[in-house]
């Protein structure tokens, strides 16, 4: 038998196969990313004792009716693009100095020593509760959450590099009240404007404290979750918390 070389495989149709795959992927995939605002829904709990009503100054109510008319803190608005400025005012009015007369949320200014004292107290309390016989796990967890909160504040003030940590009233929140027939477009605009205001507040703080933009911190945090960035984000969240309540419409 004569020796024969292995015949070469014809690769001419390889390109066709690859093209076919390529076109399949082109058709079934999308390039555009999904963008959204994430909000949390409050847990369904049975309330036995109704909580005390929130002070009016601590609410930034954004109301919209069925005719798509807007009202912020009892004031009629014609242009929905102005919402973000009103929200900025809500946070900034008393930030430098508390004014008891104006109708904006108060700030507390807590010093390093006070945070340390509160942290020690919280740790002592938590340990005491843990040692008491048949203490419920809920209370122990609650106490340890408080300890964690004070620890966060401590690292926040260290990062801020100032003597005091300004903190908006814990009840201060933004409240969205729409009616059932309000257009979704307006609802989304309200969400967008709130997000814009929070971004601006945090961005300004990030630029002055860390000399970098909020976006940089955000993207780095999403990429590699470094503890440094997490602490930075924690500080920005303490300074400007985004507490948003969406009220279920009754009519």
């Amino acid at each position: 038998m004569a020796k024969r070389g292995i015949p070469e495989v014809n690769a001419g149709s390889m390109a066709d196969i690859a093209f076919l795959l390529l076109i399949f992927f082109l058709v079934t995939t999308t390039m555009d990313k999904d963008h959204a605002y994430i909000r949390s829904i409050p847990k369904n709990v049975i309330i036995e004792i109704p909580p005390e009503p929130v002070e009016k100054r601590n609410i930034c109510a954004i109301q919209a009716n069925a005719q798509n008319q807007l009202m912020i803190r009892g004031e009629l608005m014609t242009n929905p693009d102005d919402i973000s400025e009103r929200v900025l005012d809500f946070y900034r009015e008393n930030e430098a100095q508390n004014d008891p007369i104006n109708n904006f949320p108060m700030y507390s200014r807590i010093s390093k020593a006070e945070i340390q004292a509160a942290l020690n107290l919280a740790i002592d309390e938590a340990e005491a509760v843990e040692k008491t016989p048949n203490a419920s796990q809920d209370i122990i967890d609650f106490k340890y959450r408080q300890v964690a909160e004070w620890e966060k504040k401590q690292s926040a003030i260290d990062l801020l590099g100032k003597n005091v940590l300004p903190e908006i009233a814990s009840q201060a929140h933004i409240r969205i009240e729409v009616q059932k027939a309000t257009e979704y477009n307006l609802f989304a605009t309200i969400q967008s404007e709130i997000e814009e205001a929070i971004f601006e507040l945090r961005n300004d703080a990030a630029l002055t404290v860390f000399k970098e933009s909020y976006k940089q911190i955000q993207s780095r945090l999403a990429m590699d979750k470094a503890p440094v960035d997490r602490d930075k984000m924690e500080l920005l969240k303490i300074l400007y918390p985004d507490r948003i309540i969406e009220v279920t419409p009754r009519k």
């Binding site: 999904d34 963008h35 959204a36 994430i38 829904i41 027939a181 309000t182 257009e183 989304a188 279920t248």
Partner: peptide, 24 residues
């Protein structure tokens, strides 16, 4: 109408799915 959004939220709350996102 935004009312439907809140109806959806109510349904989700009942089964403890507590994260909602509004796409824009």
């Amino acid at each position: 109408p935004s009312g439907i959004i809140f109806d959806i939220r109510k349904e989700l709350q009942d089964i403890d799915a507590l994260k909602i996102a509004y796409a824009v």
